[in-house]
Design a protein around this nucleic acid. Structure first.
Lengths: 339, 339
DNA sequence: GTGAAAGCGCTAACAC
DNA sequence: GTGTTAGCGCTTTCAC
């Protein structure tokens, strides 16, 4: 920490600290002449108020926390961009914390927020998060929370997500229409909202097409690339192998392409593929990948906007806000129909 | 902000605030009996010290700032992961700011740091940054700065980057060895350290191979995808078109693949390609992409580690630290030699 | 081993 | 219009 304080300015101007403070915030109580002088001197010394002193005094930090599982895939990168753009415009600061998909860490991170470090929290929960006591605690401490993407249903808080159910439903319909008879759905951690809703959308679409959906059609994958490759290889080597695959998160796309190539299965002729991803490179894969493109930037932006509204407007009930931003099915070559 | 304060604990325990404070930090002046009682009550009330009060008092925020151009590509995502992992281990908080490649914004962001909001700064400068007065100012205000990836040479500060020159040199050599006669180098903003060093590595390799390198071999691209596609198309449509391309940043890879496909140029037979990127999908492109893979996570981790050393050790001169972490040329199908 | 007091820098209520 | 005062919550020196 450094330099110029209000006191120093006051002394040099033969004013009181209080008057300088008021002048700096353009209070009507201060003569414009004095304001000029104060502003001039402040500029000269590059005076910047100590944020912690004023946070302490005003009991507001002008800071929000963003809690994420990881910032490895394109979804969270874009979401951060969205959040940051709103925060910067509103003059808020953004603290970032990664749970690394670890519930214990997520708990620790959240528990530190009870002390007033942040005015509000944006969170996308970890894979391991199956209960929300840690979130309820910050909520009862009076700190607003907005969930985004990986939301938690049974809790009273704002939730911003994409239409996971419909996205998966559409994707499944697309594969069926292109002639798939047996579709596998690759998912991750079952307790995540995005997972369960996507699985439901998948199963509903099968159902509506009068195709029996069994649990065996859903393959639970992990965070380990090697292991996922093995699982997918097993899947594609079995007698009753699928002719369509939905990769419900970005990191499952690479293993699908790799393994199908290894096994000499041609996409889309032997196997059609759809991925939930925002990868730019989807269009330059061979074949180019049909995607359920998520409004990642928009989700981040909306979540932040809603949070700031909650922080700034007195009688705005955050908990009522549940916003769904639609994803978009972008058809490319990986689902081309058989001729 | 909320809840329990030291005062309240003190009152309930019939102690002074000072004693409670000492007990909480396990001072030897306090009897272990008292410590027990204090700790017990603190736990009961989930006491968490107000960070801003103690920052104010101790003139230390336990917070660092990360200033980035953008968090769109895989490089910065991984770097953030690296930074955050160290920060979390050290008990530091991470504020994130995006310059969006805008110098004015970068200046504004930096100037706010003079007030002591952060103990140190990690920065990767914007494309537009051609002078460093804003950085020198925080430096003279006593706030340590560590550059990472996009460093700034003529300034006394720690710098963590990859071997841009050698990476480009190797990439160029690789193309030459695989039979390329004319190589184009796609670059972005010329004033960036990474750009100029990579261009130099490229030109040196041509030189060493006794190939005249002209400025025309370097194609300056922008941030606009459409425009880049047009530029690359022009390049590949001219009579004297290249048979090798180096995409010096991740976002230039997609346009190269797209355009070469549109023009019916086969990679690697008609055109060999190397990209500076950490994309997972490099291996599933068709053909798979030879990459200069950067140690993104490591760079972030090292930058943070160096910064914390500077913050914690009294006589550690940060400015001396200039660390280069090698990138790795990973050969894949996009540079396969002609048979 | 514990307490009292001062102060980090700022703001807001109240005085004049 | 400007000054004074008190205090946000915590830490630290100095007394006892």
């Amino acid at each position: 920490m450094n330099g110029t304080t209000i006191k120093q300015l006051a002394k040099e101007l033969n004013l009181s600290a209080g008057s300088v403070s008021k002048a700096l915030k353009d209070s009507h109580e201060i003569s414009s002449e004095t304001k000029q002088k104060v502003l001039a001197l402040a500029a000269k010394y590059h005076y910047t108020p100590n944020p912690y002193a004023s946070s302490l005094r005003k009991r507001k930090s002008k800071t929000i926390a963003v809690v994420l599982p990881e910032v490895a895939d394109s979804f969270f990168s874009l979401a951060i961009n969205g959040i940051e753009s709103v925060a910067q415009a509103k003059g808020y600061h953004v603290l970032i914390y990664l749970s690394h998909e670890d519930f214990k860490r997520e708990e620790q991170i959240l528990s530190a927020f009870r002390s007033g470090r942040v005015d509000g929290i944006l969170i996308s929960v970890s894979e391991e998060t199956s209960q929300a006591d840690h979130i309820k605690e910050v909520l009862t401490a009076g700190i607003p929370v907005v969930f985004f993407d990986r939301i938690f249903d049974d809790i009273e808080a704002a939730k911003i997500s994409t239409n996971d159910f419909e996205g998966a439903y559409e994707a499944t319909r697309c594969l069926l229409e292109r002639g798939c008879k047996k579709i596998s759905f690759l998912s991750i951690a079952a307790n995540l909202s995005i997972t369960s809703k996507r699985v439901q959308g998948f199963q509903k679409a099968l159902h509506d097409a009068h195709i029996g959906a069994t649990d065996a059609d859903v393959l639970l994958c992990s965070n380990d690339m090697e292991q996922n490759c093995r699982l997918i290889r097993q899947l594609l080597e079995q007698r009753d192998k699928p002719d369509g695959i939905i990769a419900s998160v970005e990191k499952l796309v690479t293993p699908v392409y790799l393994v199908s190539k290894q096994l000499g299965m041609a996409i889309p002729d032997d196997l059609k593929v759809i991925g939930f991803t925002n990868l730019h490179s989807a269009s330059i894969l061979e074949p180019s990948l049909t995607t359920v493109t998520q409004p990642a930037f928009e989700i981040g932006k909306t979540a932040a906007t809603v949070l700031f509204k909650g922080l700034e407007e007195k009688h705005f009930t955050l908990s009522a806000q549940t916003i769904t931003i639609p994803s978009m099915l972008v058809e490319r070559a990986s689902t081309r129909g058989n001729q």
